[in-house]
């Protein structure tokens, strides 16, 4: 399988071939043998050239990180094969991503009004709760389709504030 992996802003081309618990990885042209064993859900034990790593997959809201040792790397994986399969499947609710309020608070600013184009990770709305301001980011690249709140509005936890398509 061939993947396009973005880690901390850098894009890698990566090919994986499995042989038992051993994987032959071709990372940007160089070959690396990785022994990988799942220890728990979202946790893998890797041995690469005798070095042992515990790696964790961490998802908080719209962010996806891979944690290696103490270091956290924002990571996205593109699988060309599943891209094809997704295109052929009916475009349902999956194409629309919602931005929900993480906790009750007040909308203090709208950064991307309805109709504006946003990148993944771009701030859309700023809410204030417990005297702290929090920027809610777009979960994907797209267009802000719906903005259900205005500046100054009180919002409940879980309330959908905007939709990005």
């Amino acid at each position: 399988m061939i993947y396009e992996v973005s880690v901390a802003g850098k894009t890698h081309k990566l090919e994986l071939q499995r042989h038992g618990s051993s994987w032959r990885c071709t990372l940007d042209g160089s070959e690396i043998t990785v022994d990988a064993v799942p220890t728990r859900e979202n946790v893998l034990s890797l041995i690469i050239g005798g070095k042992s790593y515990e790696v964790k997959e961490e998802v908080v809201g719209a962010e996806s990180n891979v944690v290696v040792g103490n270091q956290r790397f924002p990571a996205t994986v593109r699988d060309p094969r599943s891209l094809r399969s997704r295109r052929s499947s009916a475009a349902g609710a999956e194409g629309v991503k919602k931005i929900n309020a993480p906790m009750p608070g007040k909308v203090v600013r709208v950064l991307a009004p309805a109709g504006s184009e946003v990148d993944a990770g771009q701030g859309v709305i700023v809410i204030e709760a417990m005297k702290m301001q929090n920027e809610l980011k777009s979960p994907k690249k797209g267009v802000v389709k719906k903005l259900t709140v205005a500046e100054g509005a009180a919002v409940d936890a879980g309330q959908t504030l905007a939709e990005v398509e």
């Binding site: 880690v7 890698h12 690469i48 790593y53 997959e57 891979v66 290696v68 990571a75 996205t76």
Partner: peptide, 8 residues
């Protein structure tokens, strides 16, 4: 390593 892990 993180890139490899993400793909895995």
């Amino acid at each position: 390593t993180a890139a490899i892990a993400a793909a895995l």
